[in-house]
Design a protein around this nucleic acid. Structure first.
Lengths: 241, 241
DNA sequence: CTAGCAAGCTTGTATATACAACTATTGATA
DNA sequence: TATCAATAGTTGTATATACAAGCTTGCTAG
């Protein structure tokens, strides 16, 4: 490495082993469930220590490419055990990444009585007080998403004092109560008249609706319904192999 | 460990350190961007070797909880850098998991000329021959998803000889050409008259449409459009923290 | 005062070693 | 034949060590 001219980019040894294993699987040489060389065999073959060979196997296992069982060995995973993942992001981030301008309009911000369903989902009693907000998100002055959100009072007591045209509810909640968990449901629906008006769409236009429930270590924080016109918005995803 | 009665379940040391770090983050003690103790500091504090402390930091980094930069240190990740992931699964698997019966009806299986758009997406020339299949999926005798799929002839030459009421196209393709990559787009749409008839829905019913493009190591394998009635089908997701 | 260098800390890679925990096979015994 | 026990092989955890590579800080020379 003393002479930068002749310097070559030498990959770390464990990545070489990983590549070798990937190649064998992707080319079909090693079929599903077939046994992969053991740590010791790989160490011998590539002239590295067992710990280095182990690292290659370990990382591929975390990626879902291999399956390991103590005592038995390492095997090629079944293809259906590979999960294909769709990333759900903050609308503001998405718009920013497209290079467009995001803005938001706060339509409603008040305290309401929890409906039966809302109470259950927020782990409260029916008619307990909850905070409710409606925020309309714009991409370059075009309405693109309506956010309707119920928030647990106890966990976020200052919710009503915020201005959600400046900071999105998601950003505020993240700063107040670090999220530890979330579930999503994605549906295609027809929006009701009020929502259609806000989003400036026909009443027959299909909408993509994401229902998101978020937890912090203290319990269920919030319940959000995100509605977007089907012709202006889509979710994009990428397989993690 | 000689006496099974007094045997206690002792967690591995690195998991104890992981838990300690998680607790500090989830409780809000350690805010975003704040510096986490270095490997050496943790090793000292927990009386373990540096490599063990390292493993704890490493795994939390892979989970997206921490961010590390060589030379600078380890820091609590920003919450927006946590990705919320929606798992896209095979319709047959999903139905099976619900304990319902999956069946499929093969409507079309033939060779067609690629349209301009299809050709581009499959990385072929316009009017090149491609295989095309239409399969209708049932959950307990109720039509729940229409699968329209274009397949690259060169990579899967025997596609036309299959019977897709027995094995789903996805299963067959997985066995023929191991998938290395896939992209998805999820939209809400209104189905055309033909599709509405097949799925037994009104022409005004919104549908969830997933477009999936899959690769093997040889190139683009197939292009599928999966259309499901919005009132019968939804995608469920879970945050990986 | 500033530019640049050096020291010290951090994480990244790699090795050698030891033992624990688990599995599958083999062989001996009833 | 059936059952149990020993054994060899595999992955899992943990340590000590060494050096490479990158960032930060502070000092020094100009």
């Amino acid at each position: 490495m003393t002479n930068p001219i002749t310097k070559t980019v030498t990959k770390a040894k464990f990545t070489v082993i990983k590549q070798h294993i990937c190649d064998n699987i992707e080319s079909g040489q090693w079929q599903q469930h077939s046994k992969v060389p053991s740590e010791n065999e790989l160490a011998l073959e590539f002239n590295v220590s067992r710990m280095t060979a182990r690292r290659a196997l370990q990382e591929l296992t975390e990626q879902g490419l291999l399956v390991r069982t103590q005592g038995a060995g390492t095997f090629v995973a079944t293809f259906k055990s590979q999960s294909s993942l769709l990333e759900i992001r903050n609308i503001a981030d998405e718009i920013a990444q497209r290079g467009h301008l995001h803005s938001a309009q706060q339509l409603v911000l008040k305290e309401v009585n929890a409906s039966k369903e809302t109470a259950i989902l927020l782990n409260l009693k029916t008619d307990d007080k909850v905070f409710y907000s409606e925020v309309l998100h714009f991409e370059n002055d075009e309405a693109i998403q309506l956010e309707q959100r119920y928030v647990n009072q106890k966990l976020v007591p200052n919710y009503l004092q915020q201005d959600f045209s400046e900071m999105t509810p998601h950003e505020y909640l993240s700063s107040e109560a670090p999220l530890t968990e979330a579930t999503h449901e994605v549906e295609a629906v027809l929006a009701n008249k009020k929502v259609c008006q806000l989003l400036n769409i026909e009443s027959t236009s299909p909408c993509l609706q994401v229902k998101r429930r978020t937890w912090s270590s203290q319990g269920v924080v919030s319940l959000a319904t995100l509605t977007s016109p089907g012709d202006k918005y889509r979710l994009g995803g990428h397989l993690i192999f």
